[in-house]
Design a protein around this nucleic acid. Structure first.
Lengths: 212, 212
DNA sequence: AGTTAATAGAGAAAAATTTCTCGATATAAT
DNA sequence: ATTATATCGAGAAATTTTTCTCTATTAACT
């Protein structure tokens, strides 16, 4: 039972990167200490909520002062495992897939995309932003051989389940799904849906509510 | 007070597009009726939860049968206002901005991107996937003149607040923010953060928890 | 027609999440 | 040293969200 990680409420988890970004901002601006009163005020949240969220990461603050910004940043990053690079495969080198390959900031978030896969002969064999594009046929086997844990899914919705099956066959642990589809996976596989449509639904509905 | 739209719990809102996708799938497959038992089983949710979610859209089901799939689809789409096209501007024609411009499925979600903005002279004046790229200087004024309600923000985090200010100056109503930054906006502006990092945090933490 | 089975919908209960209250503690000012 | 102030952290309360329970309704079967 040693080293077991306690599960965190998902709302908390979703706020942590928001804190992190703000903390990096003020760190760059020279602040070395910060209180939850300050964070909450800036991000329009409740101070107690921020305190409880931060408590999950295990950090301790000092009364009257708050938290050491530098320590807090690295504690959150550790908590999210963003200080360890994890290799990942990306499948689907379309518009979105290319954009993701082109964004070279993922290393900051612990993600290292080492290969991409597609079925378009025009793309296979090429390198996109220094990442080689390989044929889908090799996906399963390479996941297995290279012990890849994270698969990034940027294929059309129609292909999503098929590719998912291949990933699982190879032994993938987690899938970052950008397709607007809900994947069928065994219980133990981590799936995080990052499709635009969820977010867009929130936007369009709130706008409709606002404009009556 | 007539025509006031009741506000929906956000968790519900986030599930609606998931239902919608599944419903379209089974509709294509020829099913004309569906029960929440079925939906919930397929999406691994609780049937009562699905029923309560759907109830927000105002649809009524029939005992023993469930809901008419076609009616349900269009009811959800109406609810999200995806049956009305809303014009939008996109700002920041980088990797992600281009990918979004290249995805021509947004009309299905009620979104019509009619112009893009950037400060790169090499891009200004060109058309990307039939959308003209204009200089940032014109952003504010065109939002005002064309009564644009939705701004899509795909600029680097460092520019995000600056562009946000320009959008608000023009009178934007809602911002779909893809930058990993939390924007400062007046209370009445709708902001939906769609940055990757939130989603990635959930993925990497859950994976870390799973692998202990 | 009567019976059975499946499901919607309403309301209650349970669980999760957020917000409030308060005592303890560290810092700065007097 | 004493006092005043800001904030953490623990626990309680309130709120929101999810899950459970039950009744009524519809359709298919006997």
């Amino acid at each position: 039972m040693i080293n077991e990680l306690k599960s965190v409420p998902e709302p908390t988890l979703r706020r942590l990167p928001v804190y992190l970004h703000y903390l990096k901002d003020i760190y760059k601006a020279g602040k070395s200490e910060v209180s939850t009163t300050n964070i909450a005020g800036e991000l329009k949240l409740d101070p107690t909520q921020v305190r409880k969220d931060l408590a999950y990461t295990g950090i301790a603050g000092k009364p009257k002062v708050g938290y050491d910004v530098e320590v807090l940043i690295s504690t959150i990053e550790d908590f999210l495992n963003w200080n360890n690079l994890t290799d990942a495969f990306l499948v689907g080198v379309g518009n979105l897939g290319m954009a993701i390959l082109g964004y070279n900031g993922f290393k900051k978030y612990g993600l290292n995309i080492i290969a991409a896969f597609d079925n378009d002969p025009a793309k296979i064999g090429r390198e996109i932003h220094n990442v080689p594009v390989l044929p889908i046929e090799k996906l399963s086997d390479l996941i297995k051989r290279m012990h890849i844990h994270i698969g990034i899914l940027t294929v059309p919705a129609t292909e999503a389940q098929k590719i998912t099956a291949l990933m699982i066959q190879g032994g993938i642990e987690a899938i970052w799904n950008f397709a607007p589809a809900s994947l069928k996976v065994p219980e133990e596989i981590v799936v995080e849906n990052a499709g635009f449509t969820t977010s867009l639904a929130v936007l369009t509905r709130k706008l409709a509510e606002k404009l009556k």
